[in-house]
Design a protein around this nucleic acid. Structure first.
Lengths: 81, 81
DNA sequence: ATGCTATGTAGCATTAATGCAATATCTCAA
DNA sequence: TTGAGATATTGCATTAATGCTACATAGCAT
């Protein structure tokens, strides 16, 4: 098992992708399709095994109609908005 | 000269880093230090030769006290706020 | 003119992000 | 119970993002 997450392992990126995705009743495959990535990539991101590129983060936010800062943060995110 | 920019060359990421940085009277080296990257990296980003990771984008936004969406966008950004 | 500082350009090395395939597990409906 | 769908795990290949070094250029102050 590899564990990248960022060049600075001290500061990972937290996200609420799964929460937002399921709230829309979407499957990972469906979100992946909308965003244009492999469905496994969504899995990696939801498990926070690595953090996305900015492009991907922006696309995901758009696909889930959320603000980037509502979805991703350098500090732990609480459940629910 | 290489030209990555994103896995999807059709959709680059536009940014206003230089504008925001100079507005604060910061040099690239200074911004790089605050953000924890090499000063050349800031240059590449300002010239939009490639787009940053989300972690870096979040750190830059914080260092320039700007919203991520004010600094970066999938669509071209106009000058001035 | 000289020198200093900021920035641009060019390579090269490393690593994280992504693609992709194959297999496993888990849940839930029939 | 069986099967289908969703998610997890593993492993490998590719490439973009980043680090870093060296040299060039441009502007500005002296």
């Amino acid at each position: 098992m590899l564990f990248p997450m960022s060049r600075n392992p001290e500061e990972p990126v937290y996200n609420r992708i799964e929460e937002a995705r399921t709230a829309l009743g979407l499957t990972r495959q469906e979100l992946a399709d909308r965003v244009g990535v492999h469905y496994q990539t969504i899995g990696y991101l939801e498990r926070e095994e690595y953090s996305p590129s900015l492009v991907l983060a922006l696309r995901i936010a758009k696909a889930l109609n959320q603000e980037v800062t509502e979805l991703f943060s350098l500090t732990p995110l609480k459940k629910g908005r």
